[in-house]
Simulated scan of single mutants.
Amino acid sequence: MLFNSKELWAERQKLADSIGGLVAEGKVDEARIAEGQVKQLDITLEQVLADEAALRDSARIAEPAARATFGEQILGPRDAFDGIEFGFKAEAADPSVVHVPGPTEVELELPGKPADLLSNFAATLPSVPSSGSVSFKQRSRQIGGPDTWGGVADGKSAKKAKVIYTWKDAVANKEAIAGYVPVSKDTLKDYADLLSIIEGDLLIDLGEKENAKILNGSNSAGIVGVLNTPGIIEFDPAEFDLVAAVGGLYYEAIRCMRTEVMKTARRVPTHVALHPDIKTAIDLYKTSTGLYQVLGDGVIWGMVVVEDFECDGILVYAPACAKKRPVHNITVELGYVNEQFIENELSILAEKTTALQVVYPDAFCYASKAKLDAAAGKTS
């Protein structure tokens, strides 16, 4: 069932008014559920208002031109009529089947690709420009730690504790991400068309591809994504006593993964990236009393939720422990490809070159959806 903005607003007001009454009656859990529903309605209402505004803007229709009647088709225009003579003949459409088409309107604006639906993983990482591929020291594991000295016993001095801090050489290789769009030469004169192609399509596609590379890249001569970086924590749910229900297992796994990062990397993770299917399962997970465990406020266990279709699982992390290293700004060029010179076409090419530098791999803890689901199946 579709609701318009007035109906949604009325529903929101009814829910908002009920919160105070529920709190007064001591029904705190029900009040929190209602509060979460109000937030969800606000999101829906914003979209509906935008859709209604767009519909109103697109409703401008030109007045239809007057069409000749059957008699006017036979006799011609009144101001040009000089009478008819014997032998006169004319044809016109059968008035019983005359079809008068509705008014038409020509839209010259190109529908662009919608902006990013969700904030992605790459958008949460800091970005520091570089002049090319980056050689750096990557933090590795620590061996030993300070301890008390055992002193001298029986004339023999005890050894003091040895501490070894380790780093390893790493390279953040640059990689070019590019794509081109063939267009007619006439399009090069149309500002609106070019703006739609460059900003509404190519730029969005480049950003999505960059995010996929930064998360899942496996090019040994280019970008090696975070999930393929040696040293990140591979979370195994089988080692923990988690609940059987899938939604609950996801929810508890995130908390355990947060602790693993703190213990291993001595960092407090601030973000959790997960696939929208996992976020949905968490949102719909209910306690034994039938109440939702999470009310969809965008924060789980104190960490900002980043829904990303490229993340096939759960990634708990501290963004400052890795950074994007763009080599240069995005470039846009025009040129010919193959037979375009004689086909009145050109190509618009957009390109960006970037690298990924993961300084603290153990500040990233990943669990695949397959492993999490398998663990839920074994315990159920």
Rank of each mutant, 00 (worst) to 15 (best):
Ala158Val: 05
Gly144Ala: 07
Gly155Lys: 10
Asp147Pro: 01
Asp154Lys: 15
Pro146Ser: 11
Lys162Ala: 11
Val171Thr: 15
Glu234Gln: 10
Val181Glu: 15
Tyr191Lys: 13
Gly144Asp: 05
Leu215Gln: 02
Trp167Phe: 14
Asp193Val: 06
Pro237Ile: 14
Asp236Cys: 05
Gln142Leu: 14
Gly222Met: 08
Ile204Pro: 00
Asp190Tyr: 04
Ile232Met: 04
Gly179Ile: 11
Val134Thr: 14
Glu234Phe: 11
Ile204Glu: 02
Lys162His: 05
Lys174Phe: 11
Leu215Trp: 03
Trp167Val: 12
Ala221Gln: 08
Leu195Thr: 07
Asn173Cys: 07
Lys189Ala: 04
Pro237Cys: 13
Ile197Asn: 02
Lys209Phe: 01
Gly225His: 02
Val128Arg: 12
Ser184Ala: 10
Ala238Leu: 12
Lys156Gly: 01
Gly225Val: 03
Gln142Trp: 05
Lys189Asp: 04
Pro129Gln: 11
Arg141Ser: 13
Lys174Cys: 05
Ala178Trp: 08
Lys174Tyr: 12
Thr166Gly: 01
Asp169Asn: 10
Lys137Val: 06
Thr187Asp: 02
Ile223Trp: 05
Val226Ser: 05
Ala212Gly: 01
Gly155Thr: 14
Ser157Tyr: 02
Leu188Ile: 06
Ile198Ala: 07
Trp149Thr: 10
Ile143Leu: 14
Pro129Ser: 13
Ile223Phe: 02
